[in-house]
Computed example of a mutant assay.
Amino acid sequence: MTVLTDRYTRAVDYAREAHATQTRKGTQIPYLYHLLAVSSLVLEFGGNEDQAIAALLHDVIEDCGATHAAAIRSAFGDAVAAIVVACTDGSAEAKAEHATPEARRADWTARKQHYLSHLAEASDEVLLVSCCDKLHNARSIVQDLESPAVGVSVFQRFTGGKSGTLWYYDALSRIFSSRGSPPAACFERVVARLHDAATH
């Protein structure tokens, strides 16, 4: 059994403060909800405390800025920082450099391709956190697709659009399955539902 210490409590507070003004795309749901959900999935699939903490912090660099990397390393150690960095496909500053939709789409495609290549060789610890992150994201998209109030308009929230989003989740599923990540089978089923809901 994974025992959670006061480090985990401090990580929840760190994530809450870092993402305090942010919400999930297209909603008024506090962003912390996603981070807690991903951390819960990590624990459900056998992760240790470092992985559960990294799950709480996995979007801090990407959404709040690159300066958080050193702060995370100082507060939570090298193992947590390494997972967070490995789960980051671009800093908030780097993404902000692209002003036009075309530039953002090109940057998105390049970042996702690089991230997929990186995952193919990432450690099992990184794979677990990444897979749980993508699993929760995919479940949220399916939920919106199946909602009459949202439906396929959910894809308007994403830089990759419908085709890019479906491509990305397919590619992720293949990698997680080939690497034998514990949540891979669950993720594969959710991606199948994602395709079904996107085309009906």
Rank of each mutant, 00 (worst) to 15 (best):
L166E: 10
T109F: 07
D6G: 02
L128E: 01
S130D: 02
A120V: 07
F155N: 01
D144R: 11
V142A: 05
Y33F: 09
V84C: 13
S153E: 13
S130L: 01
A149L: 14
H68L: 03
A55N: 07
S40D: 13
L36S: 00
R105T: 04
Y33V: 12
C64G: 02
A75N: 10
T88G: 07
H114D: 11
I29W: 09
G26D: 12
D13W: 00
P30A: 07
G90R: 05
S123V: 00
L41R: 11
R174E: 14
G47I: 08
S123N: 08
I29E: 15
H19L: 15
Q51L: 02
S123F: 00
A106W: 00
F176L: 01
G161M: 09
V190K: 04
E188R: 08
W167Y: 13
A18W: 03
K95E: 09
R139V: 07
H34N: 14
I29Y: 03
C64Y: 02
I83Q: 08
T159L: 12
I72D: 02
S181N: 01
R105I: 04
D6L: 14
S173G: 15
H34W: 12
D13H: 12
G46D: 05
D78W: 03
A94F: 13
L116V: 15
T23Y: 02
D6M: 12
S163F: 05
